[in-house]
Design a protein around this nucleic acid. Structure first.
Lengths: 260, 260
DNA sequence: CAGTGGTCTAGACCACATT
DNA sequence: ATGTGGTCTAGACCACTGT
């Protein structure tokens, strides 16, 4: 059962725990420890390397911080297996999808052969904060409808999203209802006479907050992608801002643009 | 000098180290511990909370994993200050910049009032691997010119990049030279008769490898953005693939696209 | 029950930075 | 020389998972 591992070199200038981490990392990268496999137990590593428990724990800690392994209490430490990656193309909001009565997430997820699900829907009516007001070209304090929700694919959370829509646009539509109807929010915005013309997306990445880690069921040492999208209608009016936080390992975003 | 911190609650179901981490995190988020400030020393925390050294170290370890603090050996542990963010718009490769004789990075960085610099330039000629061959519509093993380099702004590394150009395009140009001349690689590709028409960028994020951490001078617990760009000419031929790894905290990518 | 990882203690010596 | 964090040891008890 035990792998054939090298020992540590007490003359090496790297401390033992780093050497142990490097040895384990190498086993993982080379595939000798495959995704989903269990690492040798702490006691096995202690015996093999001839070090104290804290030393092997520190080595494993390093791999956890890199998101390479995930410990399961009472069972062992396992090589993280990559979840299926969702590839998001920049035409994912094309009207042809909306016309089929599907929201972007629903269409994408079904296309990937997974079961889409939305939960934790919360709708409030709030005064706009400074950043949102700027993006929507409103004045701070103007009323906006705030819709937040969590998206799941095959029961696993992959993304949390919060949309901000000026009340002047949402008024009299089901945007503030739990079920926004076919085509989602964008469908209702177009019903209200705002033909969507342009999106601007701002993408970055960071470590999640503890809340985000919990909501997305992330292990330690796994980053999130933040994407803020602003939707503009044909008159150039900003009609929605959508803030999303995605598990980075689950997404590749694809953008196609002319050289001009 | 010491902050006014709450104590830990032995009846709380969270372990002491998490409570300590939460207290410190709160101090940082609220600004009572500002960016650049030093946390109380380990010995101060040990005394204040009445715990063993490993316990406070574990608390600080948690904050390191979140990228909130950065330890400096012999000095203390400091609240990380955010570096200036570079905002990359999708028109950054517009010909008007190239016509001014500037490569995209040079133009961006100067526009941000920082001193651009490029080092660790390495040019090789290799057979294409499977992934690159697919992206360039070549056959695996076809010769390609591989240019890798590191970009710095005001002396701080911000990005490492590797370009892959089919030898059939690079041949007879300075693309394989250390200095590619005005307008960079894209300038030379256009000189060779390939008018750039379209780019496709694929964006994701992950934790850096140890090598990347060193090259970008990243602290533990800070992710990178990976961006793979493929450039196409007017005939639809893929003329270059560029793989970049960026310090996530230093970039916001901006894309503007029609709703179609 | 035995085996696993999670947390904690109380010490030790080392390396780095500052005075 | 002093104070800081970095690494390590050798134990302890707890909580979770499996047989």
């Amino acid at each position: 059962m035990m792998l054939d591992l090298d020992g540590i070199d007490r003359t090496d200038d790297r401390p033992p725990y780093r050497q142990i981490a490097a040895i384990l990392r190498q086993q993982i990268k080379s595939g000798r420890l495959a995704a989903g496999e269990k690492l040798p137990s702490e006691s096995a590593l202690i015996e093999h390397f001839g070090v104290a428990r804290m030393t092997v724990r520190q080595a494993v800690q390093e791999l956890r911080g890199e998101g390479l392994v995930i410990p399961e209490h009472g069972k062992g430490v396992f090589v993280r297996s990559a979840p299926p990656v969702r590839r998001l193309a920049s035409d994912r909001f094309a009207r042809r999808h909306r016309d089929a009565g599907k929201s972007a997430f629903l269409a994408e997820t079904e296309a990937a052969g997974q079961k889409p699900q939305v939960d934790r829907i919360r709708v409030t009516n709030e005064p706009a904060g400074a950043d949102i007001a700027r993006r929507l070209r409103l004045t701070e304090g103007d009323r906006i409808v705030v819709r937040s929700r969590r998206y799941l694919a095959d029961g696993r959370p992959v993304e949390i999203a919060t949309s901000f829509i000026p009340e002047s646009i949402a008024k009299g539509t089901p945007i503030a209802a739990t079920d926004t109807g076919p085509g989602g929010i964008y469908g209702r915005i177009e019903d209200a006479g705002h033909t969507l013309a342009r999106f601007v997306e701002e993408v970055s990445a960071r470590m999640p907050t503890p809340d985000e880690r919990k909501a997305l069921d992330l292990g330690a040492g796994t980053p999130v992608i933040t994407l803020t999208r602003t939707a503009f209608d044909a008159e150039g009016t900003a009609v929605e801002v959508c803030d999303t936080v995605k598990a980075a390992s689950a997404f590749v975003l694809e953008y196609d643009f002319p050289a001009r």
